[in-house]
Simulated assay, not measured.
Amino acid sequence: MFSFKEYSKEILATIVLFIVLMLLRIIVAKLIRKFAKTSERLEHRTNLIIKYIHLLMNTLVIISLIIIWGVDTKDIFITVSSITTVIGVAMFAQWSILSNITSGMILFFSFPFRIGDTIKIHDKDFPIEAEIEDISAFHVNLRTKEGEKIIFPNNLLLQKGISIMTNTYEEKEFFD
């Protein structure tokens, strides 16, 4: 039969872990939003990065709970390595998804162009000069002078040379 006295340390550790998780989620979200505001990043991209970091934090909390409640560490490593192997094999054919998500995070934190900039992608077979309309987790939406919409994968954007052009498009009014 379950006894609170018998599991008091585990219950206390679990409560403390959840409190720390909540505080960390709030602090990390505020720090990322502050960074995004000072660097003029878009809100939906900021929310995407926050979701990724919260997912990582939740995963670490689940692993911590397993350890707190006394599951043998060897069993945890076998389970995690098995899950990682299955995911790795399943995602091998879909590596571009992970590559694009990682590239999207890199673009968010370090690339110098923003929505509205005109860029030139240096590709010897298919050079592109277009205005950036949107940057998402998987791809960048571009619009050429001729009005053609191009959806360019984030991972390819990091692999190509890019020039930021002076904006030659006519000024547009944007409405919410």
Rank of each mutant, 00 (worst) to 15 (best):
I49E: 08
I83S: 07
I83K: 09
E171Q: 15
I106C: 01
S81G: 01
G147Q: 00
V86Y: 05
D117M: 06
N154S: 02
K145V: 06
T102S: 13
Y7F: 13
R143P: 05
T118M: 12
E43G: 03
V71G: 02
T73M: 10
L31E: 13
I150Y: 08
S39Q: 12
T144G: 06
E171I: 13
T102D: 11
V16E: 12
K124T: 12
I27P: 00
L55Q: 04
I87Q: 01
I101Y: 05
S103R: 05
I135G: 05
D125N: 15
E10I: 03
L107D: 06
I135H: 00
L142Q: 00
G147H: 02
K74N: 08
E171N: 13
L48K: 08
M91G: 08
G104L: 07
Y7A: 03
E170F: 12
R41G: 02
F113N: 03
N167I: 08
I67F: 12
S136D: 13
N155T: 12
F174E: 11
L21K: 03
F126C: 13
G147P: 07
E131C: 07
F126Y: 11
I50Q: 03
I76S: 04
L60K: 09
R25V: 14
A29F: 08
V61Q: 09
K74R: 13
I26T: 11
I132D: 01
G116D: 10
L23N: 10
G147W: 03
R41A: 02
I106E: 08
L55S: 12
A90W: 11
Q159K: 15
H139E: 15
N155M: 05
L17R: 05
N154M: 02
E129S: 12
S103V: 09
T102E: 02
E43N: 02
G104D: 02
I67P: 00
K74M: 05
D125S: 14
V89K: 04
F108E: 03
I62K: 04
I78K: 02
G147I: 04
N141V: 14
F126Q: 11
F18Q: 10
P127T: 06
T84N: 06
V20C: 07
